[in-house]
């Protein structure tokens, strides 16, 4: 089991957002988490990566057999959890490539691996940047500073393919992307699909799932998963909206 969430409840600013989440993800699986705005999707993504300000009030999360909640943010990252953010943060003055290399080496060191040498790194980053169609010029700029929305998202995917996580969480990665960018981003994600890697794709729309085909789809509403199914569930949601599901759940 890659990830196992049991009865997770959590508050933000004293308000209960997650009201008992149960979710099991096996290695190699791609899970989509869908749901209306404010249903708790992003909260879940942030709790998995250990963001401060989210108070877990109950339940447990196991990642590759260990208690995830006892780990610091960077420890989770070092052990292979990657969060592609909905709003990637700008780091003025911090060179994009330097950042990526520091990050890669931090992860490698934590695993007892050797740091990557400059030449191999440059070669790798150029190659991967091409694969996600990120302009090489952006590698020399400050992290995300002055990037367009699409560039920021490509940069997130570049980081993801470079860091090769075991569990990648994509938080609304499709928001604000045009169809070309969406395709490139999805290609990057698909490139990473492998039997030892799992993914959580958080999205509001079915559109992204046309490109990244999920094994399972969950619908989150008001802090609970109200329906789980295969990829056809996403199509049904696309056709019928969330309304009927919410009504059913309420009934």
């Amino acid at each position: 089991m890659m990830l196992s969430i049991k009865n997770l409840t959590a508050n933000v600013d004293g308000k209960e957002i997650l009201k008992g989440i149960n979710l099991d993800i096996k290695a190699g699986e791609v899970h989509a988490i869908m749901g209306p705005n404010g249903s708790g999707k992003s909260t879940l993504a942030h709790i998995l990566s250990g963001r401060d300000g989210y108070e877990v009030t109950g339940g447990e999360i196991h990642y590759k057999g260990q208690d995830l909640l006892s780990l610091e943010t960077e420890e989770r990252a070092q052990q292979g959890i990657f969060l592609a953010m909905q709003y990637p943060v700008e780091l003025p003055g911090v060179n994009n490539m330097t950042f990526l290399r520091e990050s890669m080496n931090a992860i490698r060191r934590s695993r007892g691996e050797e740091e990557i040498d400059a030449v191999s790194f440059m070669k790798l980053v150029r190659e991967k940047a091409d694969s996600v169609k990120l302009d090489q010029k952006l590698l020399k700029r400050s992290v995300n500073a002055g990037f367009s929305g699409g560039e920021k998202k490509r940069n997130e995917i570049l980081q993801m393919v470079m860091l090769e996580p075991y569990l990648a969480i994509l938080d609304e990665t499709d928001s604000g992307l045009d169809i070309d960018a969406l395709r490139t981003v999805s290609d990057g994600v698909n490139l990473l699909r492998s039997p030892e890697r799992s993914m959580i794709v958080v999205t509001h729309y079915q559109r992204l799932l046309e490109y990244i085909e999920p094994d399972h789809v969950h619908v989150l509403s008001d802090g609970r998963i109200i329906r789980s199914g295969g990829k056809e569930l996403a199509l049904e949601l696309e056709a019928r909206g969330y309304g009927w599901l919410l009504e059913e759940a309420a009934a």
């Binding site: 250990g50 300000g53 943010t73 969060l83 953010m85 990637p88 780091l91 990050s103 992860i107």
Partner: peptide, 12 residues
């Protein structure tokens, strides 16, 4: 805090 979280999420 956003910047710090971002860097830490990348393993630093």
């Amino acid at each position: 805090e956003d910047q710090l979280f971002y860097c830490r999420q990348r393993g630093l």
